[in-house]
């Protein structure tokens, strides 16, 4: 496992690089390549679930990446700007800016495939083959965040509805479940319920309940192994050879 960086240049801050977690398989009897982008096998860009689901699915996501490495597939999990270790402010991010960032990550890591997790399905770079795992509409996730906020407000004796909250958020932004979402992010999340553009791996195929449902974060090694195996079995064997033009893998400072 390597912690690395990629140039997720954010126009609104001085932050010029973002963090990513990379897993590169070590070939039997040989040295690991000095660059993720030069790994000769498949190089999978993994896009994390969004907001609260990212936390609940973090261990599952990384467990899946470890399983992929064990069967020869390199993978990299970038922080979305404003999330994880990112120095960029979340309130200035939106779906369109995340799409640009993801395209930059795909280019930097020379990704051959993409795996989206839940609502990150809407961020899949056009033209990159891959899979949507249990895709979820950003509009549905926003609805759930608004509902949680409304429930908590009612518990605290305040009135309000999800509709009025949404109207306010579209004007001024909102702090939902600890995430400072700007007006553009709220507006774009509300508008996003795209059909899948890649083959879908359903939760049913993993034969266990989705870990995003858990009230408290959980993990399930068997589910991660099943997801990795499904990816390996449906991976097109062509078009994965690296045309290596990228910089060597640098350790994060």
């Amino acid at each position: 496992m390597i912690l690395t960086t990629w140039p997720g240049a954010c126009p609104t801050t001085a932050a010029t690089s973002e963090m990513a977690l990379a897993f590169v398989p070590t070939p039997a009897g040989g040295a690991a390549p000095d660059s993720f982008a030069c790994h000769p096998g498949p190089r999978l860009l993994v896009l994390p679930a969004l907001f609260d689901e990212a936390n609940r699915l973090r261990r599952f996501t990384v467990a899946t990446m470890r399983q992929l490495a064990a069967i020869g597939i390199a993978s990299v999990l970038p922080d979305l700007p404003g999330c994880g270790e990112s120095l960029a402010p979340l309130e200035t991010q939106h779906i369109a800016s995340w799409r640009e960032a993801v395209a930059a990550a795909a280019a930097h890591f020379n990704a051959s495939h993409v795996l989206t997790i839940r609502a990150s399905a809407c961020l899949a770079p056009p033209g990159l083959p891959g899979w949507h795992y249990a895709p979820h509409a950003p509009s549905s996730q926003l609805r759930q965040l608004l509902r949680a906020h409304t429930l908590a407000a009612r518990e605290a004796g305040q009135s309000g509805s999800s509709e009025s909250l949404l109207a306010r958020g579209r004007m001024r932004g909102l702090d939902l479940a600890g995430y400072a979402l700007g007006a553009q992010m709220i507006t774009q999340l509300h508008a996003e319920s795209p059909p899948p553009t890649l083959p879908v791996i359903t939760q049913h195929a993993l034969a266990a309940p989705g870990l995003w449902l858990r009230a408290e974060p959980g993990e399930d090694a068997a589910q991660a192994a099943r997801l990795a195996t499904l990816i390996a079995h449906t991976l097109p064997q062509s078009a994965t050879t690296a045309t290596c033009v990228a910089q060597p893998l640098r350790l994060a400072q």
């Binding site: 609805r143 759930q144 965040l145 509902r147 949680a148 906020h149 429930l151 009230a215 408290e216």
Partner: peptide, 13 residues
């Protein structure tokens, strides 16, 4: 475990 976030998830499911 059933805080407002979890209840929102429960209702959606």
């Amino acid at each position: 475990e059933l805080d407002s976030m979890a209840v929102a998830g429960l209702l959606t499911e």
